[in-house]
Simulated assay, not measured.
Amino acid sequence: MEKTCFQIHGIPAILWGSGSNKVYLYIHGQAGRKEEAETFAHIGCHYGWQVLSIDLPEHGERKKDTNSFDPWHVVPELLSVMEYIKGRWTHISLFANSIGAWFSMLSFENEPLEKSLFVSPILDMNQLISDMMLRANVSETELERERSIPTASGQTLSWEYLLYARNHPITKWKVPTAILYGEHDELTDRTVVENFVQRFHCNLTIMKNGEHWFHTPEQLEVLNNWIETRLRE
């Protein structure tokens, strides 16, 4: 499989596969990096797709970036990447993982994507932050006063981030979408996923005993089989 490393407007990227007029943009989640797209690319290239993966701020080659893994930095970047893609490919689809799905929906609601594949997507950031605040016993008043509060989970609650999430709910998503969701996903409640699926007419696959992070041999087998099925359609 061909692999080309380059940059898009300063964003580290990898293009996987030989020439094609079809491309999947691969968006990783938190703690991910562009290289993780390799397994997906092997499957995608078999079905005639190229795969373009990038490093989001503070990840991969950009770990030295600071205070930029947030939607007001990521969304403009993703839009610039999409403009690059539209100038080079005819058929464009999306694969996104976890928070990468949320960033993608914020960025691409008006883009002519043919299909999107979401794995363990964050679909309601406002709800997720509210749940984190509840677990950390942090009130809105406290967060507004302090602006940011580190939690025992390692995540930092941010008043600015909460306001952004509330002001930018996902209200439009017309892309035909398939979702793979773990039954025991600790970040997104099943009711949130089911409501999203019903609202936007998505295809939903639930892995029994699955988690948010698909990483065990059994989970990875389910993930890869799901990808194979979706790309074969």
Rank of each mutant, 00 (worst) to 15 (best):
R232C: 04
P112E: 15
I43Y: 02
L163G: 04
G182W: 02
S153F: 00
P71Q: 12
N67R: 11
D70V: 12
K174E: 10
H201T: 09
N97W: 03
M125S: 05
T229W: 06
S104H: 04
L78P: 05
H91V: 12
L56E: 00
R166P: 07
S80N: 11
V222N: 12
F108H: 07
E160L: 10
K86I: 03
D189H: 04
I11W: 08
T4E: 05
Q127G: 00
P112Y: 13
L79Q: 14
E228L: 06
E233I: 09
L94E: 10
S116E: 07
E2K: 02
R62V: 03
F118E: 04
S148W: 07
W49Q: 11
T171P: 00
T156I: 15
E146L: 08
D189Y: 04
T66S: 15
F103V: 02
I122W: 00
I99T: 14
G182C: 11
T151Y: 06
H9S: 08
D55K: 08
W49G: 14
H215E: 14
A31E: 09
L220A: 11
G19F: 05
E142V: 06
Q219W: 08
G87S: 15
S107M: 03
A136L: 01
H201C: 03
P12G: 06
P76Q: 13
I11R: 14
E144K: 05
L25S: 10
H201K: 10
I85E: 01
I122H: 00
H212Y: 11
V74D: 02
E111H: 11
S93I: 15
V81Y: 06
S93Q: 03
L231P: 08
V75H: 09
I170L: 14
E233N: 13
A152N: 02
D131R: 04
E77L: 13
N110H: 05
E211W: 10
P169D: 13
W159Q: 09
H28V: 11
P176W: 08
H215W: 13
M1E: 03
V175I: 14
R88T: 09
H9D: 14
G60F: 05
R230F: 13
D185T: 11
Q198R: 14
I149R: 13
F69R: 05
E146G: 12
A178E: 02
H28S: 07
S120M: 05
M82F: 15
L117G: 04
G19Q: 12
H59W: 08
E109T: 04
L123A: 01
E221K: 15
S148F: 04
L223D: 10
F118V: 10
L56D: 01
N167Y: 03
W159S: 07
G10Y: 05
K22R: 14
Y26W: 11
G10A: 07
